[in-house]
């Protein structure tokens, strides 16, 4: 066979690249749903890649079905793609459930900092340079809130998570709101 026959279509390769790039961008976001979308995009990119690795398309891979001289597509690659689609589906369902649960508990689905990061940020807050005037930050803030300010892990500007939680989720699960979120007016 010629080299050309085995070269994957440029469109597919480009599509894989775009899927990976956008997927990585979304993976780096904070909300779990966006991370999930990123995962779905990269997952599709990988599936497409598996398909491309199986070579170009051909006749259906049933022995005796292909006309003379026409080669078959690679069934193994398609079987692997199928498996990975099923697995991805299950994991997406699980992550969605987790995002929903997180929204129930906190009114948002942002992935919180790990405990260690918070502790480090807290130390950073305590050791902040004097000209920032540590007193102005207010002693009424908890350390977690202080850490959140320093670490900037909250972005209140563009979502209505907190208010929604007050309206709908908060009265049921209010006791579990232990995250580091501060109300917008408290922020410097």
């Amino acid at each position: 066979m010629t080299v050309l026959e085995n070269t994957p279509s440029a469109v597919l390769v480009l599509a894989i690249g775009v899927l990976f790039a956008t997927g990585v961008y979304l993976l780096l976001e904070r909300p779990l749903t966006r991370v999930l979308l990123g995962f779905v995009l990269i997952g599709n990119g990988v599936n497409l890649m598996l398909l491309v690795m199986g070579g170009r398309s051909g006749a259906s891979p049933i022995v005796g079905n292909a006309p003379e001289g026409v080669r078959m597509s690679d069934p193994l690659a398609q079987a692997m793609v199928l498996t990975s689609i099923v697995i991805t589906l299950a994991l997406v369902a699980f992550v969605l459930a987790m995002a929903y649960r997180s929204w129930q508990l906190h009114g948002h689905d942002e992935v919180a900092d790990d405990v260690e990061d918070r502790r480090v940020a807290r130390h950073a807050a305590l050791n902040a340079p004097a000209f920032e005037d540590a007193d102005a930050g207010g002693l009424d803030q908890t350390l977690d809130e202080e850490a959140a300010d320093v670490h900037d892990d909250v972005d209140d500007s563009d979502d209505d998570g907190p208010s929604r939680s007050h309206d709908r989720g908060h009265h049921r699960h209010g006791e579990a709101r232990t995250d580091a979120r501060t109300d917008p007016e408290e922020r410097p």
């Binding site: 993976l27 779990l32 991370v35 995962f39 994991l91 699980f94 992550v95 987790m98 649960r101 997180s102 508990l105 906190h106 992935v111 919180a112 790990d114 579990a176 232990t178 995250d179």
Partner: peptide, 17 residues
């Protein structure tokens, strides 16, 4: 599905994914 476990679980599942 407690708050602490969901937090830890989110990190875990993203990393494993």
């Amino acid at each position: 599905g407690t708050a602490e476990r969901i937090r830890a679980g989110s990190v875990y599942i993203i990393v494993t994914l």
